[in-house]
C-alpha cells in the first residue's frame, strides 16, 4: 500500500483532515498540503479479541485527537495506553499480513515529552 499516512491541510482556509479527500470539506478548495501529525491525546481504547485472520490476534486500538480537531483511529503499540495519554502516530509496522494484500503503516505510540 502506498499510503504515506500523512494528514492534509487546506492551503486556503487552514482546515485539517486525516482521511483523504480531493477538496477541502470546509471551503471546497482543491489546494492542499500534507503534513505529519504531531502529538495527540487518546480519547478511547479497545482491544479487539476477535480479529480477521490477517490481523494480530489481540488488536489494541485507540482513537486519538490531534491539533486542529483531527481524529485518528489506529492500532496501539502498547495495550497499556489509556485515554488521556499523549500519543504520536509513528513507526512502520505490519498492520495486516498473510491475506491477499499486506498493509504496513504507523501505530499510535506513547509520545515522549
Amino acid at each position: 500500500m502506498s499510503d504515506d499516512w500523512t494528514a492534509s491541510r487546506c492551503d486556503d482556509c487552514g482546515e485539517r483532515w486525516f482521511y483523504g479527500r480531493v477538496r477541502c470539506p470546509e471551503c471546497g478548495s482543491d489546494r492542499q498540503s500534507t503534513y505529519r501529525l504531531a502529538v495527540g491525546v487518546l480519547e478511547a481504547t479497545t482491544t479487539a479479541s476477535v480479529t480477521p485472520p490477517d490481523v494480530r490476534d489481540e488488536n489494541a486500538l485507540g482513537l486519538a485527537r490531534f491539533d486542529g480537531d483531527v481524529t485518528v483511529v489506529a492500532q496501539l503499540t502498547d495495550d497499556a495506553l489509556e485515554p488521556g495519554d499523549a500519543v504520536r502516530l509513528g513507526g512502520d509496522h505490519s498492520l495486516r499480513e498473510g491475506g491477499e494484500r499486506a498493509y504496513r503503516g504507523p501505530r499510535l505510540e506513547p509520545a515522549e515529552d
Binding site: T47, P52, L63
Partner: peptide, 25 residues
Amino acid sequence: THEREYAQGLTLPSFGGLAADGYLR
C-alpha cells in the same frame, strides 16, 4: 470501513468497543 481504517484492522465490533469505552468514561 474507510480504507485507512481497514488497513489498521478495524472491524465493526472494534468500533463498537471504542464507542462503548468512550461512552462509559
